[in-house]
Amino acid sequence: MSRSRDVFIVSNSTDELGGVTAWTHRTAQLFQEQGHRVHTIGIHAAELRMALPEPPGYPVTPLYPSHPPTPWTPQGVRDRFRFTARRDEAARTARKRQAVDRLSEIFRAARPGGVVIVSQVWAMEWVGEADTTGLRVIGMSHESYDYSRASHRYRWIKNHYAGLDHWLVLTEEDADIWAGDGMNNVGFMPNALAALPEVPSPRRVKAVTSIGRLTDQKGIDMLLDTWALVAPKRPDWRLDVYGAGEDEAGLRAQCADLGLDGSVAWRGRTDDVPGALAASSVFVQSSRGEGFPLALMEAMASAVPCAAFDCAPGVREIVRHGEDGLLAPAGDIGELADRLLRLTGNPRMRDAMGDRARANVQRFSEVEVMRRWEELFTFLER
């Protein structure tokens, strides 16, 4: 048993529907099982919420009841006379100071050797202003280098993570790229796979399943275009889309325009991922960008073979193409359709790849990942 520490996990939100929230609470539970005292902190409470463990067994603290307003900066002479905007900005600044003070108060209660893990880049804006005296601060990014590089988060990482004790990406490949970009304090830590379902999917239901938020990143629009190529050749198969998000109305309209309403089922959000996967024979991931996708690992743990866009190092780290799943070039709808046609048309391939997937994905077990976290904590104390 490792020595007990105070571990704070700070995220954008502690209850927002998505993979980082699932990671936060499962990791908190695992740290607690290791004997650590855990506190999860979100910058704000979410609008689209995920069901949390009942009871979580550790404090869960949002600093704001809802998403804080965006900072306002005067752009010219006229803006000097926008008194309402200036008053609102003063109120935002004062509220942020209160949030930072609350965070500092939480951190000051830590015993010597405490660790702050900042799981998302935006949250670092508050942690960076808080009093972290005597604590080791570890930043994280749950997306690939390429996906960060194409967004505003690249600048945030460069600005906020360079001076931390350590920061983590999800794969060795991405860590090497960031190191080459001048970030010398970077390492890598894969997401952990929860326990295997006791009974794997029998892979007898003619259903292809997607699980993820209905947002641009998850590429469900590309999945619908892909399914438009698959459905005419597999009229006895359906596509089950699990998830919710701001793009749902537009995606449903796209589905109708493509004439797919008869073969696509919109299942909504689910808290029973194993159950959804048990009723599936193929899993598909059509994301534009990913980190180390938990849904992909969960599908493999259920012995469901996967077809996915090779959009990030984490995806090709999890799926061994041709052995336990099939990858398609990122964004190539025709190639993803080909992978789905191969899996849906060949039950022997599905069974062989599904069984190998369930065996291979166990290299990301929770025991192994927790061992690596403990090694990191010990390293940072030297």
Rank of each mutant, 00 (worst) to 15 (best):
E246N: 07
R37F: 07
R350L: 13
D174N: 02
M300P: 09
E16V: 13
G345W: 11
F188L: 02
R348F: 08
L343T: 02
W167L: 07
R149P: 04
T40M: 05
A357Y: 00
G114K: 02
Y147T: 15
R288C: 05
W167E: 03
T226N: 11
E54R: 08
G35S: 01
Q32A: 15
V315A: 07
E246P: 06
E89D: 15
A301D: 05
S119I: 08
R356N: 09
N184T: 15
A307H: 01
V116C: 06
D247E: 11
R238F: 14
L168P: 02
L296G: 01
S4H: 09
L196V: 13
V199E: 13
A312V: 00
E172V: 10
L277G: 08
I41N: 06
E33C: 03
T378V: 14
L224A: 00
A265P: 05
S302Y: 09
V7I: 12
A85K: 14
V60Q: 08
P274A: 04
D272P: 12
G262N: 12
G113I: 00
E381S: 03
L52R: 04
A352E: 13
E248A: 15
D15A: 03
H142M: 01
R87P: 04
T73P: 07
L214I: 06
R371W: 03
F309M: 03
L294T: 01
W23K: 08
A352V: 13
R269T: 10
G113A: 02
W237A: 01
A195D: 15
H67R: 14
R87H: 15
N191A: 03
G57H: 12
D272Q: 11
E173Q: 13
P74M: 06
A352C: 05
L376R: 06
A228Q: 14
R82G: 05
R3S: 10
R78P: 08
V319A: 00
E366K: 12
P112N: 04
T270D: 08
V10N: 00
Q75Y: 05
V369K: 07
N185V: 08
I106S: 00
A194P: 11
A312M: 04
T344K: 03
D165Q: 09
S280R: 09
A357E: 12
D310L: 02
P235A: 09
A337K: 08
D324H: 02
S148E: 14
A123W: 00
V169C: 12
A231S: 15
I333L: 07
A303L: 03
G259M: 14
A194Y: 08
A278F: 11
R358M: 10
R320Q: 13
R339M: 10
L30I: 04
A249H: 14
A278H: 13
T84W: 10
E105M: 15
D236G: 07
A110D: 00
E381L: 12
L260C: 10
A109Q: 09
G345K: 12
A328M: 06
F81K: 10
A231E: 04
R87G: 12
G331N: 10
P62E: 04
W373C: 02
G289N: 06
R111G: 06
R382E: 06
L277S: 09
R86C: 11
H44N: 13
G139F: 11
I138C: 07
M189L: 14
C306Y: 01
D261M: 08
L326S: 01
E335D: 14
R80K: 10
F107K: 00
S281M: 06
S2T: 14
D174T: 00
H142T: 00
L223Q: 12
Q29V: 06
R363G: 01
P235M: 02
R350I: 05
